[in-house]
């Protein structure tokens, strides 16, 4: 378990101090894939570097498995660091060493014999699916392959935590997905806690189970992944959620008065926000039948997050206005949030 308690980091400079992290407190449980999202300069990298003390907090505690590591000696700290893997946006592989030598790098002085190290390197290469590149140099690899090597290297000393600072930001979407799948796999297989920093909500959506949103050095919102998407509270969070949804198209259509969403008299354009398990009930057809209203779906965005459905549906509903209102109430009685757009 990782606990940050009131972590503050201030960079002093001549003109003015930069408050990269302001009183950040959060708890990361074993086995979590914990995402921290924020715009550039929000302080994400600084925060994640505080977890292995590459950056020493100006104040606050960093407690890992009950031990406040800010109080440890340099030597003890190095021991802790060996149990915290880290991967980077630009991979940071040693260019003069082969893939195998890079992976074996953290094993020097670990007391393992040459054969044991070889075996371990082979196993890790197998895990990241790069056996045929064993003797290649980093310059001969693609970005995705380099990140795989970096992951293998970070796992070599059997860490319990893996810190990922924008680990997929230099990769194309497909490669990003394959790296995320690999991270998910090692999370399951090795029960590895993963702390992942990103500015892409899609990354968060595809692997995290807990999320913190960071803005100007502070955590402004923190929740499990589903609630964050279903119920974003802060404006930044809403904006981030928007980036992975196609719902902004709907708002564009409303703004430009698109013919697709023209409502006639006795009609209303409403937005249904589904959450949790009400998406599997045949609400729309039930409503048409029971309240003698006409419904037509004009826009939708449905997805499954953390094995739970989540979606928004824009429908045009028409009929006697009493019936329409009753239908809306019916939706709401099933926990569907209804927003009348027009």
């Amino acid at each position: 378990m990782i606990e940050l308690k009131h972590v503050t980091k201030t960079f002093a400079s001549k003109e003015k101090d930069v408050h990269a992290c302001k009183d950040v407190s959060l708890t990361i449980h074993d086995g979590d894939i914990y995402g921290i999202i924020g715009f550039s300069g929000a302080g994400k990298s600084t925060l994640v570097r505080c977890i292995n003390l590459l950056e020493r907090p100006t104040s606050g505690e960093v407690i890992i498995d009950g031990v406040d590591i800010t109080k440890l000696s340099e030597k003890e700290l190095r021991k802790v660091r060996k149990k915290i893997g880290m991967i980077f946006q630009h991979f940071n592989l040693m260019p003069s060493r082969t893939v195998a030598q890079n992976i074996a790098y953290p094993l020097k002085g670990s007391g393992l014999s040459k054969q044991e190290i070889n075996k371990k390197v082979d196993d890790l290469l197998e895990l990241v699916d790069l056996k045929e590149k064993k003797d290649a140099y980093p310059s001969q690899l693609s970005g995705g392959q380099k990140q795989r090597v970096a992951i293998a290297r970070s796992l070599a000393s059997d860490p319990t935590v893996l810190l990922c600072d924008e680990a997929t930001s230099a990769l194309d979407p497909q490669t990003t997905q394959s790296i995320l799948n690999l991270l998910k796999e090692v999370n399951k297989k090795l029960n590895l806690t993963i702390v992942l920093i990103t500015h892409e909500m899609a990354v968060i959506k595809s692997i995290c189970n807990q999320v913190a949103v960071m803005e100007n050095g502070s955590i402004v919102e923190q929740s499990n992944i589903y609630d964050l998407f279903a119920n974003p509270k802060q404006q930044v969070t809403k904006n981030f959620v928007m980036t992975t949804s196609s719902m902004n198209k709907l708002y564009e259509m409303i703004e430009s008065n698109s013919p697709l969403i023209q409502v006639k008299e006795n009609e209303k354009l409403i937005l249904l926000n589904y959450a949790n398990n009400n998406a599997d009930k045949a609400l729309i057809s039930e409503v048409s039948r029971n309240f003698s209203v006409d419904t037509s779906i004009v826009f939708g965005n449905l997805e499954v997050i953390d094995h739970r459905p989540l979606g928004s549906l824009a429908i045009i509903i028409g009929g006697e206005s009493v019936n329409v209102d009753a239908a809306i109430q019916y939706f709401e009685s099933y926990g569907v949030k209804v927003e009348v757009l027009k």
Binding site: R78, H90, N92, L93, S96, Y105, R153
Partner: peptide, 29 residues
């Protein structure tokens, strides 16, 4: 030498001496 390599070395728990010999000197041959 790419500062990222120094950072990686420190993150892997290298002592300053190890960083000097295994990264600074080795990587700038």
């Amino acid at each position: 030498v790419d500062p990222g390599l120094i950072e990686a070395s420190q993150a892997m728990g290298d002592s300053p001496m190890q960083t000097i010999f295994r990264v600074y000197l080795k990587e700038s041959i």
